[in-house]
């Protein structure tokens, strides 16, 4: 399966790369959604290589990279591929970190803050509601601002935390992209599944080209799996590249 590239061979498509770390386990899921649902070219990128194979979007997938030993993302950030991802992001390249990918991006310093143990101290797997705080990113351009999406989470360490100054900056620059809400878009403590500061479910980098989110959009991208709201993230990315 490694190195398999799925493509419909159409022109002007962008190429996605999905990183495989030892212990990634949502790598194939993202690959499937991009290749078979979004019909975009997609390839796997091996953690031990610096080569991003000319990809336009890098997905840092969910899972348990290096078993989440020591701390989530703490070992993965030293992988050779992450050096390339950092350079790629610095140059404005699009990077989407999902769940464990979000944790890795925080550890690697591409996003601020950290994801700590859920307040309930347990792994939580369930669909949650998140409000799209801004459509002004390449990841949410297919959404409406304020739109409430239903996307599943599945994590033990999804409790977003950062210092006050960082939080103020995230708010000021409108870099909080998703917040956990109730079905009506209200921010409530009950709607927060893991204790995240300010109900934060996803944030982006200052350049708005790196997004980290705890919910798994690839899990709700096909109706038969229970929902399609997650697909809007991939749709946005495809749209963003078409504009380039």
């Amino acid at each position: 399966m490694l190195n398999s590239t799925y493509s419909h061979g159409e022109e002007n498509q962008m190429k996605f790369g999905v990183i495989i770390f030892p212990g990634s386990n949502c790598d194939h899921d993202a690959h499937w959604t991009i290749g078979h649902v979004a019909h975009q070219p997609v390839t796997f990128l091996w953690h031990d290589s610096h080569d991003l194979q000319g990809c336009d979007v890098i997905i840092v997938p969910g899972g348990f990279a290096y078993g989440d030993y020591l701390r989530t993302g703490a070992i993965a950030k030293f992988s050779p591929v992450m050096e390339s991802v950092r350079k790629f992001a610095d140059g404005g390249g699009l990077v989407l970190g999902i769940c464990n990918g979000f944790q890795i991006l925080c550890e690697a310093g591409l996003l601020p803050g950290a994801l700590i143990r859920n307040v309930g101290l347990k792994y939580v797997c369930k669909p949650v509601h998140v409000r799209v705080e801004t459509a002004a990113t390449p990841f949410t351009s297919a959404c409406r601002e304020g739109e409430v999406l239903t996307i599943p989470i599945g994590h033990m360490e999804g409790n977003y935390f950062c210092d006050d100054a960082t939080l103020a900056e995230l708010r000021r620059d409108r870099r909080v992209i998703f917040r956990y809400t109730d079905p009506n878009g209200q921010i409530t403590p009950e709607a927060n599944p893991n204790g995240s500061l300010d109900n934060i479910a996803g944030i982006c980098s200052p350049g708005r080209n790196v997004l980290g989110m705890m919910p798994h959009p690839e899990r709700f991208s096909e109706a038969e799996l229970g929902g399609t709201d997650g697909f809007k993230i991939f749709e946005s990315l495809v749209g963003a590249m078409a504009e380039k």
Binding site: H28, D29, G62, Y123, C125, G154, E218, E222, L225, G226
Partner: peptide
């Protein structure tokens, strides 16, 4: 069962 990942692999109908 909420402590179990029941959605990974995106096949769960």
């Amino acid at each position: 069962w909420q402590q179990y990942d029941h959605m990974v692999q995106t096949n769960t109908v």
